[in-house]
Each structure stands twice: as C-alpha cells, then as structure tokens.
C-alpha cells in the first residue's frame, strides 16, 4: 500500500504540480520524512524496498527538475538527498550504490570511472530516440538536417521532454536511431548535425 504511489519508475508527468500535505511535490515519496530512509538498511529485504524507493525518487526528481546529469557531491546538499526538516542526509556511498543500481538497469551512466557524476536517464535512450523520431516525423522535418542545438535548445522543442538535454546524451540517443538506420549524425565544424529519414 505504501509503495503504490511511487512504485512505477516513470511516474506520470502530471504528478509534478499538486502538493501534498507536507508541502512537498507529489513525486516526493512518502518515505521522504521517514528517518530510516536515509540509512542504508543492512537487511536485504528492507534494502531492496528502500532501493526501489530511492531509484524511482531519483528518476522522478531529475525529471521534474529536468536534471540530465547528477553531480553526487553537489546533489547531496540538495533536497533530493537532504531532508532538512528531519535533518537526515543520505550518505555518499549509499547514493553511489543506488546510482550504480540505476546504471545496471541502464537508467544512468557514469561519466567517468571516479563515479562522481552520472547521466540520469529517466527515459532510456531508446525511448528518447523514438520520441525524437516521432517528433521529426510529425513536424515533417524528415530529410532535413537539424543541428543538435536546434533539437535541445530550439524554440520548437520547448514542450518536448528532451528539451535541454545534455549534448553528449543526445548523441547517445541519436546513435540509437543511427543503429536503426533511420538517421545519420555528422559534424559541421564544432556543431553536430543530424539527418533523419
């Protein structure tokens, strides 16, 4: 029962707006105020529940805040891992463990082997790739060359989920399309362009 509100890894986008009693957005899990939530539970069963809560919370938080990359040390001090009202903070090793788990399910990716910064994919690259393809198709831009900046920063894409996406991530998503044989990525000077057909 307690798990139901945040069990799905990709919560509905509409959930961002309403606020619950505690004054927190709905994507905050109810465990946010539960002190043991901030301690890595040694019990395997408890930990797996705790882990799945944290996973979905991180994804939901990044989605709501349009966070593409997470600097763990910086994030520690944000609301994501630090509940000031009960004065509890998730320790860095535990955060790393959770992100590691996200990486395993390809919901995240370490930027480097130091494991201090991670891309957070609240949708998988395949999902994004499909969305981009669909959008290009719908807007009749098939066959035209678009710069990557146009895709992530352009006026036409402000309503799209990938708006503001990190360039490196976008390349990864487009590579999915390349692999499918639906797109081609090429460089124009410093800028990169993509052509979808």
């Amino acid at each position: 029962m307690l798990l139901s509100s945040s069990r799905s890894e990709i919560p509905d986008f509409t959930m961002t707006d309403p606020k619950d009693k505690a004054g927190l957005p709905a994507y905050y899990p109810e465990f946010y105020t539960f002190p043991p939530f901030y301690t890595r539970q040694p019990n395997a069963a408890s930990w797996s529940s705790q882990l799945s809560q944290w996973r979905s919370f991180i994804l939901a938080y990044c989605r709501a805040h349009k966070l593409w990359r997470l600097n763990l040390v910086d994030a520690m001090e944000t609301d994501l891992f630090y509940n000031k009202s009960i004065n509890r903070k998730l320790p860095l090793p535990t955060i790393r463990e959770i992100v590691d788990d996200l990486v395993k399910s390809s919901n995240a990716e370490w930027l480097s082997s130091e494991k201090s910064i991670a891309y957070i994919y609240w949708r998988t690259p395949e999902d994004f790739a499909s969305q981009i393809y669909l959008w290009i198709d719908e807007t009749g831009q098939k066959g035209t060359v678009l710069t990557l900046l146009e895709l992530t920063e352009g006026d036409n894409t402000t309503q799209q989920e990938w708006y503001g996406m990190d360039q490196a991530m976008l390349v990864k998503c487009l590579n999915v399309l390349v692999k499918r044989g639906q797109a081609q990525v090429f460089s124009v000077g410093d800028d990169k362009g993509v052509k979808v057909w």
């Binding site: 465990f31 539960f34 043991p36 301690t39 539970q41 040694p42 019990n43 069963a45 408890s46 705790q50």
Partner: peptide, 24 residues
C-alpha cells in the same frame, strides 16, 4: 528483529534508532 525485516534502523549522530519497518 531487523534481520527478520521487521525493524529498520536510522543511524544518526545520536545513535541508532529503531523503527517499525514499513516495508515488511
């Protein structure tokens, strides 16, 4: 009891506090 999954711990500077597990 924690091992059985019925308690969860909360480690803070004041020591370990024990809570009834909502996940159990």
């Amino acid at each position: 009891v924690e091992e059985r999954g019925e308690l969860v711990r909360d480690t803070s500077f004041e020591g370990v506090r024990w809570w009834k597990s909502p996940w159990y």
